[in-house]
Design a protein around this nucleic acid. Sequence first.
RNA 1: GUGGCUGUAGCUCAGUAGGUUAGAGCAUCAGAUUGUGGUUCUGAGGGUCGUGGGUUCGAGUCCCAUUAGCCACCCCA
Length: 458
Amino acid sequence: MPKEKPGIPKGTRDFNPLEIARREMIFSQIRRVFELHGFRPIETPAMENLSTLMGKYGEEGDRLIFRILNSGDFPARVSDEEWQSRDAARLSARICDKALRYDLTVPFARFVVQHQHQISFPFRRYQIQPVWRADRPQKGRYREFVQCDADVIGSDSLVNEAGFMQIIDEVFSSLGLNVEIRINNRKILAGLADYIGHPDRMEIITTAIDKIEKIGMDEVCNELLEQGLNHDAIEKLKPVLLLPGTNASKLEALSGLLQGNQAGMQGIAEIREVLDIVAVTPTDCELTFDLTLARGLNYYTGAIIEVRALDVPMGSICGGGRYDNLTGIFGLEGVSGIGISFGADRIYDVMISLGLFPDAPGIYSQLLAVNFGPRERDYCLPLLSQLRAGGVRCEMYPGFAKVKKQLQYADKNGIPFVLMAGEEEMKSQLYSLKNMQSGEQKTLPASGVIEELAREGG
RNA sequence: GUGGCUGUAGCUCAGUAGGUUAGAGCAUCAGAUUGUGGUUCUGAGGGUCGUGGGUUCGAGUCCCAUUAGCCACCCCA
């Protein structure tokens, strides 16, 4: 029998203790800031009904949803004709009722509608859980990754938008990352589409101009041409997208152009108000109004936000926006919400490449008791209990290995103190305590050991 | 879904114009007089060279297929 090679699905990862410690550092900062802003945690299941997810992320999104094959005799429910059709989308809908969650926003919308009678609005929740996408993995792209979402639902006040700017600023400051927050507004993009005479082509226009930075203006124009926009429209659009200057001057110029366009002017007014509110509080991050920011997720209706690391090329590490009617699809109309999502895994990757993690943030025992034999072991165990009662992490080496081996174990696991007690120590009711960093060794009574560990900041 | 690159020990890689028993470093384990680690020294285990076919007297090396991983596009955290 050939042995099975160990492995995990591509795009997924194992995390060792050091990586966990570092990831936990990111999660705890994000959690701390969310809670400081009054958000409260919820959790939802890893899997949702497939129907809950389908159609919420656009055509591309549907394809990237991980489906879960039904249990039992699922083929019996499928006709021969359906099998023969070989239509993946149709078939999967017949043999899969469930799917892994693709993001946290749609499950949250479902949660809100389902529990609307227990929720008082506006509702501020946060959620830190993994999501899954059947994407082809590459740098900064995983098939399983953790999103850290915060949303306010049931309030259309722009204070929320400003609040999220604040949160983003605080999270990245606390992690020591330099970032640029970019903000735009879907209403401005709608106004722009209208302005160039293609009000119905907003989706195409936005996804095209989103690529300006990547492929350049010329390529974007080519793409728009291919999509059926005429020359005049594109020529009209060009100078707008290249508007130079500060946030204020860009907004000024834009409001001149979009005069009389209701959606556009409203978008401009919204951005201005958000910027004004943000200006009241001090922020570290760059906050730029960027007309070319056009996030694809099709449920955004107002503000759209994206954050990028300044010192490392990486996709967006945080994104979000306002959605006016996400709960509508589940039957709760007229509830506006806004939320953001931190991509913990990308933040981790950025911090690794910048070397921002402290050297040894791991959690390990502070003391190892060397195990000389049954009597010596039983002599030490009560002291270990006492130490733990005082909050000192400690452990007894299992089994009676050579002392050399036991010390090696302490060394490799970064355990700073080793407790040794054999014949001699037991006779005089003492313990030998070795400091692994200095090599220094003291012989002390139990109380002395406890004091020493307390002094070392256990 | 489309394209490019790669696949030799647990890990990182060497491997020369195809030629004998495929190497190194790290890691692991064991020893250097039996209660003292991190340094050093010695030794050991571990590979059907991703898989399948082909060319050849002979293939880790050349050709084809297949598979896995990485990178880019698409889209996104």
